[in-house]
Amino acid sequence: MLEITPLAWIVTIAVIVGLLAFDLIYAALRPHQVGFKEATAWSIFYIAIAIAFGFVFMAFAGGDFGAQYFAGYIVEKSLSVDNLFVFVIIMATFAVPQAHQHKALTFGIIIALVLRAIFIVLGATLLNAFAFMFLLFGLLLIFTAVQLFRHRDEEPEVQDNALVKLTKRVIPVTEEYDGGKLFTRIDGKKLATPLFVALIAIGSTDLLFALDSIPAVFGVTSEPYIVFVANAFALLGLRALFFLVKGLLDRLVYLSIGLAIILAFIGVKLILHWAHGIWDGVPTVSTNISLIVIGVVLAITTVASLIKSKNDPEAKAKPGSLKATSHSHDQADHTA
């Protein structure tokens, strides 16, 4: 079992909070449209930090725990690309100005980190207390994989988000943006701006993503510290990655299929782990095999997507949905 001292936890959290604070202050002081070169530099910076942390962690904790970290990081990074699809839809739906998308994403990432930290604590507690939670997590991931595959060509309807609807019902919202402000005053009344609603949409959407990403990373490691840092470093680079690849996302036409396969694989891995605790003869899947499978699936998915988009320029990627959208229901009714 991995032993992490309170000091190590404090230093790790301080570094992550410091990076987030720098990102947020930078976004607030210099609201601007992030260009390709800037996004590339920030992406390289955050990936380099994640890799450097992995090697330092491996030197202190050992190769096995280091491999678990890198496997968890790759899983979370690949799943975060699906988040980017939804972020693009949210930015377009609420017409967030280019200059303030940086701020919206940084706030959204902070919300995501807080929510996932809560999920990690709950998940670790449940797994330690009840061995059958491995079975439940595995079944949840397989169910998610099946739903994602079934609705791989759909887009989630952001306006139908329950928290977004509740926010608009409870808080008066203006139709106009007021710079980068979350709230504004009109005729003496305090109103929320569309930027505030966009943040609610980003945060609540990521809550849904956490329902599959947290069990998925617990499928490659049972160590809460590794789960936390893998999530944190994957999310830290999400803002820069958004500006870097948002123009290329349309070309990843098979991404949802690849992610569905990865989620199903990890789900089976969790079920085998649970079964092995009851029957010794049941095989388990090692971290190294997980790394290979995840890497191969992502490589094949990316190459196949690029070939498809090159041969068929009309083919556009979709983030996929965990349920049939009302739009698809309408189409089905119309067809009938």
Rank of each mutant, 00 (worst) to 15 (best):
D212F: 03
D64S: 15
A198R: 06
P313R: 06
V229D: 01
V17Y: 01
R239P: 15
A39V: 07
L166Y: 02
L236D: 01
V303Y: 08
H327Y: 14
L255Y: 02
I4N: 10
V282P: 11
G138E: 05
I4K: 10
D212E: 10
F55L: 14
I294H: 10
A210H: 00
N288T: 15
K77P: 08
E176S: 11
I44N: 05
F36P: 03
F228D: 00
K318C: 07
A336W: 14
G66T: 04
I25R: 12
A124N: 01
E175Q: 13
N83D: 07
D64M: 13
A192C: 12
A21I: 13
T325L: 02
Y225C: 02
I25A: 11
F45W: 03
A240N: 01
S222F: 00
G188S: 11
A124V: 00
I16Q: 01
I109H: 03
A230W: 06
F137R: 00
W9Y: 06
D206Y: 04
I120W: 05
A332D: 13
I4P: 09
K181S: 11
D23E: 15
F22W: 15
Y46I: 05
A192M: 09
A336L: 15
F45Q: 01
D178F: 08
D178H: 09
I300Q: 04
F45G: 02
G237Y: 11
G277K: 05
I186H: 10
V56Q: 10
S80L: 09
R152A: 02
V253W: 06
L135E: 02
V229H: 01
V296W: 08
A324M: 14
S78N: 12
G72E: 02
K323W: 14
T93K: 09
G188C: 10
K77C: 08
Y254D: 02
M133P: 01
V229M: 06
S305Q: 03
I16G: 00
H32T: 03
T221N: 00
F94P: 04
D82Y: 11
K37T: 12
L191Y: 08
I49S: 13
K308N: 14
A192S: 11
S80P: 07
Y26R: 14
V253Q: 08
V170L: 11
T193I: 03
I74K: 08
A260H: 04
A92K: 13
L259S: 02
N83E: 02
V293H: 04
S328Y: 15
I289H: 09
I74C: 12
V245D: 04
Y73Q: 07
A336C: 13
Q101F: 09
T12L: 05
A52P: 01
A129I: 00
G72Q: 03
D187C: 04
S290T: 13
A112S: 12
L182E: 05
F65H: 14
P6R: 07
L115N: 04
F233P: 04
Q33P: 08
L135I: 11
A317P: 06
A41E: 06
V197K: 05
S309I: 09
F36E: 12
I278N: 05
G277L: 09
T301G: 07
A317C: 06
